[in-house]
């Protein structure tokens, strides 16, 4: 419907909306995160829920300890190879629709501990991530910003059509392979459904892109 018409109707006391808008509005306003902290970033995640930053303003104050009741997994901290299977299993246990925020440098790429033999180089190798927050650790404001970005993402989802989200598409799987300990590394080392080795054009590297080294 035309936005102008809509606001005109609202002035007359008539609210017109679509099912999609109502559905998305309801979902984005009550995202329940999983009460799940891994390392340093978890402390900033707790700080974000406390009185000063007050994540409750965005409808996300209900941290659930059980994955069965949660919509959002905030991967807050370093994922080690011992912990990675548990993180994926928790994600699989969450009901659809579910979202993932990858909080901090460690959850994105391994961060300062990337060279460590026991550190997973990014949780996006196993589960799809919706929003990344850089920082070590990111400030609570950054988490709130990521949360608002997730809300915008939920708001823009279609109920029907080819672009519809995974939980409305029976064909798409909602569970992902849980890695296991192999002789040298986790098996598989990554899930090819969600992650592929990033391709870098070496011949052009550093020429026209001043930020890259």
């Amino acid at each position: 419907m035309d936005e102008q018409l809509k606001s005109e109707l609202r002035r007359q006391g008539v609210v017109a909306t679509s099912l999609q808008e109502l559905y998305n509005w309801g979902r984005k306003s009550s995202v329940w995160p999983l009460n799940f902290g891994l390392a340093c970033c978890a402390i900033e995640m707790i700080a974000a829920t406390m009185a000063r930053y007050d994540l409750a303003r965005f409808g996300a104050e209900v941290f659930r300890p059980s994955p069965r009741q949660a919509d959002l997994m905030i991967v807050a901290g370093t994922v080690t190879k011992k912990m990675a299977p548990q993180v994926v299993r928790l994600y699989n246990q969450m009901p659809e629709p579910k979202y993932v925020i990858s909080m901090g440098a460690c959850a994105i790429s391994g961060g300062p501990f990337k060279q460590g033999y026991n550190v997973l180089k990014g949780i996006d190798r196993y589960i799809p991530v919706d929003v990344y927050i850089p920082g070590c650790p990111p400030r609570p404001e950054a988490l709130i910003d990521a949360f608002m970005m997730l809300q915008r993402k939920i708001d823009a989802q279609y109920l029907t059509g080819p672009g519809r989200p995974r939980h409305l598409d029976a064909e798409t799987p909602s569970e992902f392979v849980v890695p296991e300990f192999g002789p040298h590394d986790l098996v598989p080392t990554s899930n090819s459904e969600v992650w592929s080795v990033p391709l870098v054009n070496i011949s052009n590297a550093g020429k026209n892109e001043p930020g890259r080294d």
Partner: peptide, 11 residues
């Protein structure tokens, strides 16, 4: 233990 073993000493 060991779920947050980040290889601090080795690094």
């Amino acid at each position: 233990f060991g779920y947050l073993h980040r290889n601090h000493e080795k690094i």
